[in-house]
């Protein structure tokens, strides 16, 4: 299989689909630059985590069946989110413990699932894109990508090649921002407290741009920065790697 013939199904994720299509376009641009043929199956909605994390296993399994059916024909399934990719890769097979045939399908499917940035680096060895982006940036490690998929060095490696971008370390980069999906609404006060401390840590670096690989965390952090009236741009790492400078940062009007 040559790289040119790699067929990738883009799992857009519900948050990117609804709130920030730009991240989806950034993902397509990067995947194509890496030599993939990208398709976006229409039969996708969400990975199911809102139900899964609320204890609603039946609805989660139904959603998982839809996703598996829509994506199992691709060479790879790529999501611009460690959280959703982790769900597809590590949690889907567990949903079918009482259905061996479906479990086997879920496991075959899981083998093909990747988080976007680690896929670009580890699988596609994407060549340098010659992107320029003037900023001092810092990077937050989203929990699922970090712990379930071992995404840590890949985004930093690619960001290191962006001309004009200074990447400054974020103390506590591996500490949860307090998003946690439905947690942010069910336990809003605890979540707000957590994200406030994340914002303090980010602000203390002096960076003017915060990057991460998960839109959920980014909406949480950007939303808190806006509420505090602080100007730190928040963007998905794919936007910078794809050079989408014309898109306003998350939560910035326009």
């Amino acid at each position: 299989m040559t790289k040119q013939s790699v067929r990738v199904g883009l799992f857009v994720t519900c948050l990117v689909d609804l709130f920030r299509p730009s991240v989806g376009f950034a993902a397509v641009k990067l995947l194509e630059a890496a030599g993939c043929v990208v398709e976006v199956p229409a039969a996708q909605t969400c990975c199911g985590q809102p139900a899964y994390n609320s204890g609603d296993r039946a609805d989660t399994a139904a959603l998982a069946r839809n996703v598996i059916a829509a994506f199992e024909g691709f060479d790879h399934v790529v999501a611009p989110s460690g959280s959703c990719a982790g769900m597809l890769k590590h949690h889907y097979p567990r949903l079918f413990d009482d259905d061996p045939a479906m479990k086997a399908r879920a496991e075959r499917f899981a083998d093909k699932v990747h988080e976007l940035v680690s896929f670009l680096v580890d699988v596609m060895e994407m060549p340098d894109q010659g992107v320029r982006w003037e900023a001092t940036a810092t990077y937050h490690d989203s929990c699922s990508g970090l712990r379930e998929l071992k995404v840590r060095e890949q985004p930093r490696a690619l960001l290191g090649k962006v001309e004009g971008l200074t990447l400054t370390p974020l103390p506590g980069a591996e500490t949860c921002c307090g998003f946690g999906g439905t947690f942010a609404v069910k336990y809003g006060e605890v979540s707000t407290d957590m994200v406030s401390r994340k914002c303090d840590d980010v602000a203390a670096t002096g960076a003017d741009l915060l990057l991460a690989g998960d839109l959920g965390c980014l909406m949480n952090i950007a939303g808190r920065f806006r509420r505090e009236g602080k100007r730190v741009e928040c963007r998905h790492v794919a936007e910078v790697l794809a050079g989408l400078r014309d898109v306003p940062a998350i939560g910035e009007g326009g």
Partner: peptide, 16 residues
């Protein structure tokens, strides 16, 4: 639970 402590970034306008 969300908006008491932070803003909700608005959608870009149309779905992907």
């Amino acid at each position: 639970g969300w908006t008491d402590g932070r803003d909700l970034p608005a959608p870009e306008g149309r779905t992907f």
